[in-house]
Design a protein around this nucleic acid. Structure first.
Ligand SMILES: [Mn+2]
Ligand SMILES: [Mn+2]
Ligand SMILES: [Zn+2]
Ligand SMILES: [Zn+2]
Lengths: 144, 144
DNA sequence: TGGAAGTTTTAGATTAAATCTAATCTGACA
DNA sequence: TGTCAGATTAGATTTAATCTAAAACTTCCA
């Protein structure tokens, strides 16, 4: 992963590049697993423990505000995060809860009538069903 | 709201119609505000306090499992609930966070290639932007 | 009726996620 | 070098959700 690129993206968001902030951003850019704040906190401290819980949460909040990271809307206790690299949709597994990236494609807008006076900024598509792993497991299970 | 209909829908989900369960389901069917569990708990106890916190949560869990209620996936601390009356999409306001219902329409599926071995059950569309109220407020504010 | 077996509710304790607090540290810049 | 806004920190606090074990209902058959 290109350290310069991460540094640049932080600065483009008006954020200083601190070791803790860098570690959080780098972890998110290197993984597409949509980790929770607790997972990020643990991961960035595993190698070298210099990031407190409060800082992990503060930095995630700042990164989301700066538009560099998004909070993925899925049900469940803990929020999940995602570096905004390319536009994409999400697939959530009914069984294991895993959140996977899906190729992005344009979604038809709601009708002007249904939209009313609302101002549309973004449409997000969430697919649900069985991930490849769970689909296989489920099929083999039903066969027995 | 038709008490018979509520009772029937509970029974269709294999759930006994208890006063507490009925109150939770009725509240959800009578409101499209996507309340949190805490709001539901408070509301059903306002008139006549007979439902404990644990029961409110238990019943919401049972109703979701029975497919009569869905948990709406939005960011934020507390889960929000929605009686499954008709298919619809959701609009989430960037400013006030309100979750509003939007007319349902069919969403194009992902390509077979992108779907891979996954099994698709449902596609959910979430719009984001400004609700009518906040759009108006925002416009008048910028004008000044 | 009576009473066993299953289901539901309950108050309060517990856990988990996120935020707050107030003290301390850091580093860019004058 | 000194300043100071911004960043970090440990630990306390708040909030949402779940757990526990006892009590209260239902059901259903003797
Ligand atoms: Mn993603
Ligand atoms: Mn709805
Ligand atoms: Zn899965
Ligand atoms: Zn609004």
């Amino acid at each position: 992963m290109d350290a310069k690129a991460i540094k640049k993206s932080l600065e483009s968001g008006g954020l200083r590049c601190t070791p803790q902030r860098y570690a959080v951003m780098a972890f998110l850019m290197e993984h597409d697993i949509h980790p929770t704040a607790a997972e990020i906190f643990e991961a960035v401290n595993r190698a070298d423990p210099r990031c407190s819980r409060a800082t992990a949460y503060n930095n995630l909040r700042d990164l989301v505000q700066a538009g560099l990271v998004r909070e993925v809307a899925v049900e469940g206790r803990a929020a999940r995060f995602d570096a905004k690299v390319m536009r994409h949709h999400h697939f959530v597994c009914d069984i294991c809860g895993r959140v996977e990236d899906m190729d992005w494609y344009d979604v038809p807008h709601p009708s002007a009538e249904s939209l009313g006076k609302r101002i549309l900024r973004q449409s997000e598509l969430i697919f649900r069903g069985l991930c490849a792993k769970c689909a296989q497991w489920y099929a083999s299970r039903s066969a027995s």
